[in-house]
C-alpha cells in the first residue's frame, strides 16, 4: 500500500504537466474573457476602436452598476429575454413530446419498427447542417411573394394570394420555433433512445409477464428510468436555447417584425457590434446572461454528481447497467446496433 502511494507520488507531477495546455487555453480564452467582459460591464467603454485604456473609457466613477441597471431597465432587452424564453419553451415542448413518442415506438419490442436506424439517421440530419444555411434557406422557403411555401400552399389551394409570412410576429416567431424543433428533435430522440436502451431488459420482460400494456409500460417503467437523461436534455437545451443566435439573426431582417425574433444573444451582438458600439452595455448584458447560465450549470452539475453518488451506493446494480450501456454503445459504434 505504502509502496503504491510512493509510486503515485512519483508520477503525480505528470498529472499537473498534462493539464497545462488545457489550463493555459482555459485561462486565456475563457476565464480571462469572462472577467474582462465583466470588467467592461463596469466601465464606460463604448465607441468604435476604443479600449479601456482610452481616456474616459475606464471604470465608472460614480454609480458603478449603471450599465447593469440600464440593461435591466432596457425595454428591448426585456423584450428579447421574453422572446428567447418563449421561443425556447415552445420549441422544447413539441421537441420532447415528439422525441418521447418516437422513443416509445422505436424501443417497443412488441412492434419492432423496420428501418429504425435509417429513420434515426434522417431525423438527425437537420442537426448537422450549418444553422446559418438553415436560417437563410428557410428565409427563402417562406419568401414573399414567390417562395416555395407560398407556391405549395397555392398549388394545394389553401391560399389565393401569396402570404407575406414575416410581417406577422407570431408567424415569424413560429418559424423560428419550427426550425429549432426541426433541427433538434432528432438529436433528442437519439439521446432518449440511448437512455432507454440502458435500462435493464429484465425490467421490461417482467412487466410484459405481468401483463402491463404498452402505455402502462411506457409511463410506469420507461419514463421513471430515464429521468436523469431527461433532465440532462432539459438543461443543455435550455442553455443552448438561451444563446439562440444564428437562426433569429439570419432568418428575418433586423430581428423583425417589431423585434419579435430578437433574442438576448442578438441583443448583445447588436449592442456591441452594430450601431453605437456600446461594449459596456453588451458586457453587462452578457454578465446577466452568464449569471443565469451559471445557475443552470450548477443545477446540471448537481444532477450529474447525484448520479455518480447513486452509482456508488447501488454499486453493483448500477455498474451492471453501465457495463450494459457500454456494450450497447460499442455495438452501436461497430454498426451492429443499426
Amino acid at each position: 500500500m505504502k509502496n503504491k502511494n510512493n509510486i503515485n507520488a512519483k508520477y503525480s507531477k505528470f498529472g499537473y504537466i498534462f493539464v497545462i495546455p488545457f489550463t493555459i487555453a482555459f485561462l486565456f480564452f475563457m476565464l480571462y474573457p469572462i472577467f474582462y467582459t465583466a470588467f467592461i460591464g463596469f466601465t464606460g467603454l463604448k465607441g468604435l476602436g476604443n479600449t479601456i485604456s482610452t481616456p474616459g473609457m475606464g471604470l465608472l466613477k460614480e454609480n458603478i452598476f449603471k450599465n447593469f441597471k440600464d440593461v435591466i431597465a432596457n425595454g428591448t432587452f426585456q423584450q428579447s429575454m421574453k422572446n428567447t424564453v418563449k421561443m425556447w419553451v415552445l420549441n422544447f415542448i413539441p421537441q420532447i413530446l415528439l422525441a418521447l413518442l418516437l422513443t416509445s415506438w422505436f424501443t417497443d419490442k412488441r412492434s419492432k419498427v423496420q428501418g429504425e436506424g435509417i429513420f434515426k439517421v434522417i431525423f438527425y440530419l437537420p442537426n448537422i447542417i450549418t444553422a446559418a444555411t438553415v436560417a437563410i434557406l428557410f428565409g427563402a422557403i417562406f419568401g414573399y411573394p414567390m417562395g416555395p411555401m407560398n407556391d405549395l400552399l397555392a398549388r394545394f389551394g389553401f391560399i389565393d394570394e401569396p402570404v407575406h409570412f414575416f410581417l406577422s410576429k407570431n408567424v415569424a416567431q413560429g418559424v423560428v420555433i419550427f426550425i429549432q424543433t426541426w433541427m433538434w428533435y432528432g438529436y433528442t430522440t437519439v439521446n432518449i433512445i440511448a437512455g432507454v436502451n440502458g435500462i435493464s431488459p429484465e425490467i421490461f420482460e417482467s412487466a410484459e409477464v405481468d401483463g402491463a400494456s404498452r402505455t402502462q409500460t411506457f409511463f410506469q417503467i420507461t419514463l421513471p428510468n430515464i429521468k436523469t437523461i431527461m433532465l440532462f436534455i432539459l438543461v443543455t437545451s435550455l442553455i443552448g436555447g438561451l444563446n439562440m443566435f444564428d437562426i433569429p439573426k439570419l432568418l428575418v431582417t433586423n430581428s423583425g417584425p417589431d423585434n419579435a425574433t430578437k433574442t438576448t444573444s442578438v441583443f448583445i451582438y447588436d449592442q456591441a457590434f452594430a450601431g453605437s458600439y456600446l461594449y459596456n452595455k453588451a458586457g453587462a448584458a452578457s454578465m446577466i446572461m452568464f449569471v443565469i447560465i451559471v445557475i443552470l450549470s450548477a443545477i446540471l452539475f448537481y444532477i450529474m454528481r447525484d448520479k455518480d453518488e447513486a452509482a456508488l451506493k447501488k454499486m453493483k446494480k448500477q455498474q451492471d447497467k453501465l457495463r450494459l450501456a457500454e456494450i450497447k454503445a460499442q455495438e452501436l459504434l461497430n454498426g451492429k446496433g443499426m
Partner: peptide, 17 residues
C-alpha cells in the same frame, strides 16, 4: 462547473482581447 459556458457570454471580452 465550466462545461456549459457558451461562447456568447464571453465574447465582448474575447473580442476586446
Amino acid at each position: 462547473a465550466v462545461m456549459m459556458i457558451p461562447a456568447q457570454v464571453t465574447m465582448i471580452g474575447f473580442y476586446q482581447m
